[in-house]
Design a protein around this nucleic acid. Structure first.
Lengths: 245, 245
DNA sequence: CGACTGATTGAACCAGCTCAACTCATGTGG
DNA sequence: CCACATGAGTTGAGCTGGTTCAATCAGTCG
């Protein structure tokens, strides 16, 4: 049997640590929950973790299912959404490297998670993770900090969804994404958009056509430049104005 | 100097525990964060708490201010909101007895909190509360559970704001409020609405007129009955249908 | 009583939606 | 190598759910 990889779910590949991928080398550790752990604790965490790779468009977990695992995203981008029976969809957020999925530690997933790009995660059995946390209040504190941050982002998003115009929504989305990318890489005015227009629309409470028209309008006004699979932010001045405070 | 009451902020009255109000008698303890504490721990908590009463329309704290206190609501109802510079407002939620304000334990308040009715709270210095938590991982766990629940509600609200119709929004609001009241009192088909139409509108991402029209429409269809300062839910069948899943 | 505040109702309007056509890659197999 | 699907994105034209503006109604308080 191949020790380095084993099948788990459609679209995903798992492997135990073979010595090549260790937390010590992890590029996103400093921005993720693990950062508060001592080297010895990190080693113990590594022992209960499984690196898993998800193919684009594959599902990490489904809204309402028993939360058997929690995840730390290390590569790629994940969409988190809720759906209504008639197909209407609201994307709650995009998880980037460093983000933790299953933060609430509840027994069922509240949202569906799907890989947009290829996604690499550290996966933990929820039960193992819960016992691991036990007696590590500093880690629990860190998880709580992350949850507080999530809640704060959710509140910003509620303000956006309930009270902002299409133009303000799109501007806030672009600037917000730029800021989040800057946490895990160099600050750049070029913002990749690995998600499609439909995802952006479902995140902002708009239609695909309105997103497209609004991006075109911002481009026509030289506030942004549309590039393949991304956007270049030309006037952070005008964008900040639209994003307001 | 009067030992039982001392001025603190406009619209609020504070008093240290004079022996008449103790956690042991607290009617909302079972649904609030305190419920995981041992009697001896409760006593210690009581020593760092101040019962404070806020008059209707007075502010508990302001968005962006240093978070000097955290609160456990014991009576009344509080609106939590964010504002845009031009006055647009989004209400993130209504805090009822048993709810904890400042859950995220962040150093600044993310929202503004205003008493709608007269409000009674247990108030804690954030610093005191933080030291109190230290070495009580079960309390931190409880706070984290509450935060997870808040996050889940926030996500439901994002779905509502981004993708639901006015009728679905109003129905979800009424049923949601009914369920929340049921946690702290007897289940009832009569739902008090202590907040005004403007608050409901700013919570649902609608205008006051649309809220009014929608309520009237639901009443005309005998799904609800409008009563002074409240609503009677006549057809939970039709309401659940609108609330959908 | 009048003055005020909050809620309802009516009528015109418009931001964003719906429906539909078109563009532009990318892929495929003959 | 080209003909032709296929899917994502853009653009246009008309529509509509919810807003805006304005008038009216219903309590409540002095």
């Amino acid at each position: 049997m191949d020790m380095s990889e084993q099948c788990a779910a459609p679209g995903s590949r798992q492997c135990n640590h073979s010595g090549t991928t260790v937390c010590a080398d992890c590029t996103v550790r400093v921005v993720s929950v693990c950062n508060v752990l001592e080297p010895s604790e990190l080693e113990a965490l590594e022992r209960i973790s499984q690196v898993t790779v998800f193919a684009p468009k594959s599902m990490l977990f489904d809204q309402g299912a028993l939360a058997s695992s929690v995840f730390n995203v290390t590569e790629g981008i994940v969409r988190l959404y809720k759906s209504l029976p008639d197909g209407r969809r609201q994307i709650m957020g995009f998880a980037l490297p460093g983000d933790f999925l299953g933060l609430a530690l509840m027994d069922r997933y509240g949202v569906t998670a799907e890989a947009i790009t290829q996604v690499k995660v550290c996966r933990f059995q929820r039960s193992s993770f819960l016992s691991y946390i036990d007696g590590k209040p500093h880690l629990l504190r860190r998880l709580h900090e992350f949850a507080g941050h999530e809640l704060s982002l959710a509140q910003d998003q509620m303000l956006l969804l309930g009270r902002k115009t299409a133009e303000e929504k799109v501007a806030a989305f672009l600037v917000g994404l730029q800021v989040r990318y800057a946490r895990i890489g160099p600050m750049s005015v070029t913002v990749p958009l690995p998600m499609g227009r439909q995802d952006i629309a479902d995140y902002l409470g708009l239609t695909i056509e309105t997103v497209s028209r609004t991006l075109t309008k911002l481009a026509r006004e030289k506030i942004i430049l549309l590039v393949p699979d991304g956007v270049r932010l030309l006037s952070s001045e005008r964008l900040d104005q639209l994003t307001a405070a």
